[in-house]
Simulated scan of single mutants.
Amino acid sequence: MRWRIDLRYDGTEFHGWARQAGLRTVQGVLEQSLATVLRQQELPTVTCAGRTDTGVHARGQVVHVWLPDGQVARDLVHRLNGVLPDDVWVSGASEAAEGFDARFSALWRRYVYRICDDNIAKDPLTRNHVLRVLAPLDVDRMNEASTRLLGEHDFAAFCRRRVGATTVRTLREFSWTRTAPGLVEATVIADAFCHSMVRALVGSIVPVGDGRRGIDWPATVLAGKVRDSAVTVLPAHGLTLEEVRYPADDQLAARATEARNTRGEVHTRG
């Protein structure tokens, strides 16, 4: 029986999502917790919507997992949260609809990157979730530059290439908002993301906001289709996976097939 699990986590103390021998990862912790509550020695394998990197957080991560029939109680959420560490929290668990695949059925992922650009507004309590920059940012300039990156493109200039994997993505939204004095948030939505793509995209816009680069520069980098060393991949701690959107239940299987055929074994990391 395939189950869908929704979870949140603070990525500060994790070496990313993917299970790694000898390292604390979100996948490793979740699989061990599932094995504990199911009282089985063999660890179940979970598949996530977006494999977050070391230090990246999530409020809207989604996974699927095959669980033995008859061994899953209705209080799975309560039981998992009873054994998971404090930096991981399951917000929902249910039998998945037919055809559901946490990774390939997804229509898009929404990430938010948070930046503080004012010393007075700096909050030590958010130091693990908000990047501090030294110069004030012009949100209007940043939005103008970001708009020029929207649409379907080869984002090789902002990705780490992998053999056999495409770097073509559809960027649906890339917008900047000042949500409070000294706090700027970038919202980035795409069908999927290559390794470090979100942090590289945001890193190309920040120097536009502080005046070091022209508004056209990020689009020029994109057109080059080659990883540009002038683009700074921003630190992971400012990034949070906020939401993953799926189609209606009767379209889940078709969407998964489409994604597999067009993208193959794509990464969906920020």
Rank of each mutant, 00 (worst) to 15 (best):
P85L: 08
S91W: 00
L43A: 06
Y113L: 11
Q41T: 15
H64V: 07
G55R: 04
R74V: 00
L34C: 02
V77A: 06
T52V: 11
A106Q: 08
L80Y: 07
G99N: 10
A35P: 00
D118G: 04
A93G: 08
D87P: 13
V112R: 15
A121D: 08
A49D: 01
S91T: 14
E42H: 06
S94K: 08
H78P: 01
G70T: 04
L34F: 11
V62T: 14
L38E: 02
S91K: 01
H57Y: 05
D117P: 07
T36E: 14
R39L: 05
T52C: 07
K122M: 15
Q40N: 02
V112C: 14
Y113H: 09
S33Q: 00
G82R: 14
V83Y: 13
L107Q: 12
G55S: 03
V46K: 04
R39A: 13
I120V: 10
V63P: 07
R103M: 04
R110Q: 15
G60F: 07
D87Y: 13
Q61C: 01
V46R: 02
V83T: 14
V88S: 08
L80E: 10
D53K: 02
V65Y: 15
W66P: 00
Q40M: 13
P44M: 07
D118N: 14
R109D: 03
D86W: 10
T54S: 14
A106H: 10
L34S: 01
V77M: 05
V88M: 15
R109C: 08
Y111Q: 05
L84P: 15
L107V: 14
A73S: 07
Q40C: 09
Q71Y: 07
A96P: 12
D101Y: 10
P85M: 05
Q41Y: 01
N119K: 14
V88P: 11
L38F: 03
W66F: 11
G92E: 03
D118P: 06
A49V: 06
D53T: 08
S94V: 07
S91I: 03
G50Y: 06
K122Q: 13
D53A: 03
K122E: 15
Y111I: 01
F104W: 12
Q71P: 03
L80P: 07
G82L: 10
G50I: 05
Q40Y: 00
R103F: 04
R74Q: 09
R114S: 11
G82F: 12
I120N: 04
R79K: 12
G55E: 01
A35F: 03
V62R: 15
T52D: 09
A58K: 02
V46H: 04
R114C: 01
G55H: 06
V46S: 10
G50W: 06
R74G: 13
V63W: 14
T45M: 01
E95T: 11
N119L: 15
N81R: 12
V37Y: 09
R39F: 02
S91G: 12
V56C: 02
R109L: 09
P44G: 05
R59P: 00
P68Y: 00
S105V: 06
